[in-house]
Amino acid sequence: MESLEQIKIRLEAAVPGAKLEILPNESPSGQHSLLLDNAHAVALARFLRDDAQLRFDYCSNMTGVDWPDTEITSKVKVKKVIDGVEKEVDEVTKTARPGFLEGVYHLYSMAMKHGPLILRLRTGNRKDQVQLPSFTPVWRSCEFQEREVYDLFGVVFDGHPDLRRILMWDEFRDHPMRKDYSEPDDYEYEPTPHDDVLEKSKRHQAAKGTL
């Protein structure tokens, strides 16, 4: 398989205007990923599937990741003159990173037997810009998996033919896999050694006025 850099160059040549970024992965697995821009994502995916050398005809895994708003602290060694002496000081910079939802795709090629190529798509934020382009028209295997991400993360896939909840029931309101999800407290009464479930249930019943 070509290296990720080569694939990136070829993708940029094939789809003019596409913005791509390689996201490094520091773990021993060494599985780096490629961030696509949403506007050209489907065209890029088609190219990856149909290109004679790449032939990523099989989208194995599609999933979502929730990244809430966070503050990234980075330490940089800065040379500073303190009391006339030049010293190396750690300068801590804090940058606020707005949250987003991410779609991760693991592609393999059944024809060429290589892979994985990891693609990522990011939404604008976690509230009102949660649209991502759907890859279901490109790889049918995304159909249920994108429904699952819609159900559990609340990502809306544009172009998905049948976007409904899949694991939770239709009337369910929240998205359970989000990091800030708080579970409902209307539990069935089941005492546990800790009895926190029972406490929760009692609070809920009291609030509803049924107790």
């Binding site: 992965n25 520091e26 773990s27 021993p28 697995s29 599985q31 194995s60």
Partner: peptide, 8 residues
């Protein structure tokens, strides 16, 4: 360590 992996 910080990172990600897909095993199948």
């Amino acid at each position: 360590k910080v990172g990600e992996a897909y095993g199948r």
